[in-house]
């Protein structure tokens, strides 16, 4: 238990009441890096198929929103770091609907998720990280 040197035993005891404290080791079969997207906007492109633009818009909402991450799912376990790597990237994906053709253009910010320090997974950090990253959602 490396972390016990850094934090006092007392703090460890207190933090471990069952309040998001996690011990100081990494289960390391996780991928070290990952890319995720937060989608800001979307458009339907019928791509010459004559698809109804209104329905297309609704369905592209679902399609693109499904590609969008809830950043708190990445922040909350703690120990990972999020870096913004690109803004307003246009991603074209097929609408993927059996009843209508065309594409969706999902406009998204791109983030890199990487291990920061898994031994520092604890609530204080997690909350600070949450504060810091709250603008990610904007």
């Amino acid at each position: 238990m490396v972390v016990l040197n850094k934090l006092s035993r007392t703090t460890v005891l207190l933090l471990s009441l069952g309040l998001s404290w996690s011990p100081a080791f990494a289960a390391s079969n996780d991928p070290a890096e990952e890319i995720f997207h937060i989608v800001n906007d979307y458009r339907y492109d019928p791509a010459g198929t004559g698809g109804d633009p209104d329905t297309g818009h609704t369905l592209c909402g679902t399609r693109c929103n499904a590609l969008s991450a809830d950043y708190l799912n990445y922040m909350e376990p703690g120990g990972w770091e999020i870096l913004k790597v690109a803004a307003d990237v246009e991603m074209t994906v097929p609408l993927n609907n059996p009843f209508m053709k065309g594409n969706c253009i999902c406009i998204a910010d791109e983030y890199l998720l990487r291990i920061d320090d898994l031994s520092r997974v604890h609530p204080v950090k997690s909350e600070r990280a949450r504060e810091r990253s709250s603008e990610i959602a904007r």
């Binding site: 079969n29 799912n73 376990p77 898994l118 997974v121």
Partner: peptide, 16 residues
């Protein structure tokens, strides 16, 4: 549930 590939990050908390 959360997708398995995304839930793996939470293993550390549960393993204790």
């Amino acid at each position: 549930w959360r997708l398995p590939q995304e839930d793996a990050r939470f293993d550390i908390s549960v393993n204790k």
